[in-house]
């Protein structure tokens, strides 16, 4: 059952389009990666899907509903959550407040949601009152991803969740992403490392704003282009 459908998307900043005619499909329950060289437009893709940037052309559908041109506020209510790569926490707010902001669109009490986040990221439990800006990179990533999970999203857009993390934390974060997917959250992941890519069963290769390859992860790993991406140069 298709959860996210992107059809012929072109988008960018100002007058220049970064993405040209991107199409992709994600089914419920999948963990899909998008990979590509720097500047290929992977972050732009996630920004366009989430509504931070409005598409210049193309169509976006979430669970069958047209969300082209929607604001993030609306797509969040429909169950899509986006965690950017950088500047993805509110530094002067406490951990608890950061998570609370994730629940902004929720009515009623969400303490049980916060508890659930704490079972995924136990380190956050003792640090609820700490200002997010004073935490380490790894902890901040946990807050960022935790915030994204608060609305119990159907679809989670994750932009390079392991960027800037120490190697020991990278493994931890990747296993968390897997855990999140196992709990039923569909994930679209921008993957910079091969380990991140391996989490996914399917992947899309982006280059210079265009969808160049797509397929099963293992197949892609055999192709020259993907080999060059991770091992070449």
């Amino acid at each position: 059952m298709s959860l996210l459908n992107v059809n012929n998307l072109s988008a960018g900043y100002g007058e220049v389009d970064v993405l040209h005619g991107i199409s992709l499909d994600i089914d419920e329950g999948e963990l899909v990666a998008t990979i590509g060289p720097n500047g290929a437009g992977k972050s732009t893709l996630l920004r366009s899907i989430s509504g931070v940037i409005k598409p210049d052309e193309g169509r976006l559908e979430l669970g069958g509903t047209d969300i082209t041109g929607s604001e993030p506020e609306d797509t969040i209510r429909m169950g899509m959550s986006y965690v950017p790569q950088d500047e993805n926490i509110f530094p002067s707010l406490t951990v608890r407040e950061n998570l609370e902001m994730g629940a902004f669109t929720l009515e009623g009490d969400f303490q049980d949601r916060i508890d659930e986040i704490c079972t995924i990221f136990p380190q956050l439990r003792e640090r609820m009152g700490q200002k997010a800006g004073t935490m380490s990179g790894g902890q901040q990533q946990m807050v960022a991803v935790g915030r994204g999970l608060l609305i119990k999203p159907k679809l989670l857009l994750l932009d390079e969740p392991t960027a800037g993390l120490q190697p020991s934390l990278v493994k931890m974060m990747l296993s968390k992403v897997e855990e999140i997917n196992d709990r039923g959250v569909t994930v679209l992941l921008v993957a910079q490392t091969i380990d991140a890519l391996r989490l996914a069963n399917r992947a899309y290769l982006l280059s210079a704003g265009e969808m160049v390859l797509s397929g099963e992860t293992e197949e892609l790993l055999d192709t020259d282009r993907v080999q060059d991406l991770y091992f070449g140069g």
């Binding site: 931070v52 509110f90 530094p91 707010l93 902004f104 669109t105």
Partner: peptide, 24 residues
């Protein structure tokens, strides 16, 4: 207050506030 925290959040990072679904 909820909106007060949202204001502080917007003060920290406006784009993220939008992304988070805060009623800007």
């Amino acid at each position: 207050t909820k909106i007060g925290k949202a204001m502080r959040a917007a003060s920290d990072n406006e784009t993220l506030a939008r992304v988070t679904g805060i009623n800007t």
